[in-house]
Design a protein around this nucleic acid. Sequence first.
DNA 1: CTCCCGATAT
DNA 2: ATATCAGGAG
Length: 212
Amino acid sequence: MDVKQKVKLVIERLKNLYPDAKIALKFENPLQLLISTILSAQCTDERVNEVTAKLFQKYRTAEDFAKASLEELAEDIKSTGFYQQKAKYIKEACQILVEKYNGEVPKTMEALLELPGVARKTANIVLANAYGIVEGIPVDTHVRRLSQRIGLVKANQPEKIEKELMEIVPKEEWFIFPYLLQAHGRKVCLARKPKCEECVIKDLCDAYTSKN
DNA sequence: CTCCCGATAT
DNA sequence: ATATCAGGAG
């Protein structure tokens, strides 16, 4: 089957299965989304939401984070893992926001990529969910795993995977696509033990059809 | 490529 | 015990 046709069927079936698929991180403004997304590296969204519920009470503006004690900030985000790195990223990124962007989160890919701790995946998420600007497809661990298992892409590096996906996923689906794969990745197409028998797209999946 | 790194599932 | 969780920097 043509890979573009396959993508359309995958999207159609997953939309039907997960009609409410959307970002799982809780945020009230672009700054909160930026911080949450940085924290979400190698950590479940659920835990990030637990941490940010308290964090965003304590730190309300980019200035608050920029002025924060590194040790204290690290302690505040400890349970998300990689806490020393993430604390530095957040503090330094917010210092840049204060100095260059009047304390606001910039709206361009170029400006976002200059922030420490922010690469394409994080930038794509912030642009799309805070500003409605869809320039690409954020490739996280779920998007990568499912895209490879199903056989939508051949590449291994996130940036190459994103490029391949942008060529086969219709642009109007770029926004919803990663959330559909994330929902399916968390409920059915698990990393360690995928529940292939209850999967609604197993007939389209290379990993499944090659084993059965 | 390695390092950062706590919490949970298996 | 080990793999994995909305990654990114050096």
